[in-house]
Simulated assay, not measured.
Amino acid sequence: MKNLFIVIVIFIISRPNVLAQEDLFDILEEESPQTKNFVTSTFKGTRILNGHSIENRNKGTLEFVISHRFGRVNLGAEELYGLDQSNIRFAFEYGLTDNLMLGIGRSSFDKEYDGFFKLKLLKQGAEKGSFPFAISLFGSAVYRSIDDFEPGNEPSSSERMSYTTQLLIARKFSPGFSLQVTPSLIHRNSVKIEDDPHNIFAVGIGSRVKLTKRVSINGEYHYTVNPLESIDATNSLAFGIDIETGGHVFQIILSNSITMIEKSFITESTDDFFEGDVHLGFNISRAFQFGKNKKKKLKEVKESNQ
């Protein structure tokens, strides 16, 4: 009995320490940082078709983008179904960080120069119960350099400027389907007539349907709430195919817009897609990796196939 009593006493004394130790392990487990997984490759490239997608290039990645839009297909054989006419845009886009991309470009249409940034604000979580969307902030400034003014009525540098602000809100619903909604504000420092609004509001919607690991079909539409009054403006509509081959993303596009920057194709399109005013076009990009992030580049290429 004496030995049994000693065992019981030792157990009672030692038990609180065991419980305290177990509680401490529970607290440490709860407070230790958990690795969060995020959805990737909502779209194949940085463009849905005409407009920007939620995607950024990774830190240290420089992308060279060439965009082309030809004349209307319904111009007929005399204009080689629009191929005799073309607008082109060259651009360089750079991943300053994994969440911030900067870009500059030049368009032949109206001889416009543009610069932009795209900043990731929130990412779509991969786990159940995590944040359901990805959200980015896009902003651009455009300088219209064409000299189409009357003598003695030259616009100032400020009057040549336009600005675009967008929220890119996207969700990858499944490996084969992604959707993005893009509320937009376009501001012009100067307008043609007094009835033209300086601020134009629009809402865009774009989608991606994956066909294979490297091919998808995309659609894009932008509805303008208060269009320009000086032109017979139409809403921008586009359909296209994405083809990804390693460091290249090639997009073939059919659109009623002949321009390739936001302030133009959202507010200045005048063609009717369903009346045959369709412009064949393409975007092609080539990515180059700089710095010590080549492993990230290989990961990005792998994820683009998902």
Rank of each mutant, 00 (worst) to 15 (best):
D272G: 02
A287E: 12
K295A: 15
S264W: 09
F273I: 04
V278C: 02
G276A: 06
K295R: 12
K297L: 12
D277P: 02
K296E: 13
E268S: 06
E268A: 15
R286I: 06
V278F: 07
K296R: 11
K296I: 04
K296S: 15
R286F: 10
G276C: 00
F265I: 05
K295L: 10
F273R: 03
K296T: 10
S269P: 12
S285F: 12
K292W: 10
D272H: 12
K297A: 14
L280Y: 11
F265P: 00
G281S: 07
E268V: 01
F265L: 01
R286N: 13
I266K: 04
N283V: 06
S264D: 15
S264Y: 10
G276L: 07
F288M: 10
I266R: 00
R286M: 05
F290I: 02
D272I: 10
K292Q: 11
S264G: 08
R286A: 06
G276D: 05
K295S: 14
S269K: 04
K294P: 10
H279L: 08
E275S: 01
T267P: 03
N283P: 13
T267S: 02
F265W: 03
T267F: 03
N283L: 12
K294T: 11
D272R: 10
I284S: 11
F290G: 00
D271Y: 03
K292T: 11
H279N: 14
N293V: 08
F282G: 02
Q289N: 11
I284F: 14
S285A: 11
I284C: 05
F273E: 03
R286G: 00
V278R: 09
H279C: 06
V278N: 07
F265V: 01
I284Q: 10
E275F: 03
H279S: 09
F282P: 01
L298D: 14
E275K: 09
T270R: 05
I266E: 04
D277L: 00
F273V: 08
D272S: 06
H279W: 00
F282L: 03
E275G: 11
S269C: 12
K297V: 01
F265M: 10
I266S: 04
E275C: 07
G291W: 12
D277Y: 02
D277A: 05
I284G: 04
F288L: 13
S285T: 08
K292R: 14
F273S: 05
L298F: 14
F274P: 02
H279A: 08
K292G: 12
L298Q: 15
E268D: 10
E275R: 08
N293Q: 13
T270K: 09
D271H: 08
F265A: 01
Q289T: 11
F265E: 05
K296C: 13
S264E: 13
V278E: 00
L280W: 01
K294W: 13
N283Y: 01
K295H: 08
Q289K: 13
K294H: 13
E275M: 05
F273P: 05
F282Y: 13
